[in-house]
Design a protein around this nucleic acid. Structure first.
Lengths: 96, 96
DNA sequence: TTTTTAGTTCAATTGTTATTTAACTATTAA
DNA sequence: TTAATAGTTAAATAACAATTGAACTAAAAA
């Protein structure tokens, strides 16, 4: 295995870990279905235990390159990072 | 969310957990590239710590529906379960 | 200027997954 | 029949991820 292949596998592991969770899958699904930027509070499931837990899930998704977050006023606006899905999981979003 | 959607998400979580590991990704890759049935011992990376650890990884992949295992003589022969990839991760195998 | 909204960060705890070791089964070879 | 091969299972431990609670920041509203 080349160094690039090793790196690609590390990226894949990070992506799969990020997606291996109900809450985070629901966030991805909502972002995909609405198709627009959402505030963290809008993007995450109703039943979420706490703000800090939500924040943890968004960080996990961001660090895996699956979402982009930008600050606007008191909100953080979240969108899907589609290039990552296209590169590593083409076709996946359409199965949701 | 309907009951079917809940079930589909449970399946996805199981699949992503199974793929969120270097060793198991390497197994999947080798099975995909060789394109044929392999014995467990052939399919898993050289550097694997122990038989029992290998066995654990194959069980994880099998329980996620990603591989099929059949017994022949003293070997267990392993193949990819392509239908699962097609249904939940179409296009993924070609990115490997 | 105080309070509310919308979130982040850190440390502690809880919960889950991966690895190890030892004992086991089934098949084949000596 | 004994030993070797190819793996499984179970229990213990080690490593890692998720949740909680408290204290924090920055912007907006009262």
């Amino acid at each position: 295995m080349t160094i690039e292949q090793v790196h690609a596998n590390e990226v894949r592991v990070k992506i799969f870990k990020a997606l291996a969770d109900e809450t985070r899958l629901q966030i991805i699904k909502k972002l995909y279905e609405t198709g627009k930027e959402l505030a963290c509070g809008e993007a995450c499931p109703e039943d979420l235990s706490s703000k800090s837990n939500a924040s943890y899930h968004f960080r996990t998704l961001r660090e895996a390159g699956l979402i982009k977050v930008r600050k606007e006023a008191q909100n953080r606006l979240v969108t899907l990072q589609k290039e990552t899905f296209e590169q590593y999981l083409p076709g996946f979003l359409d199965t949701l």
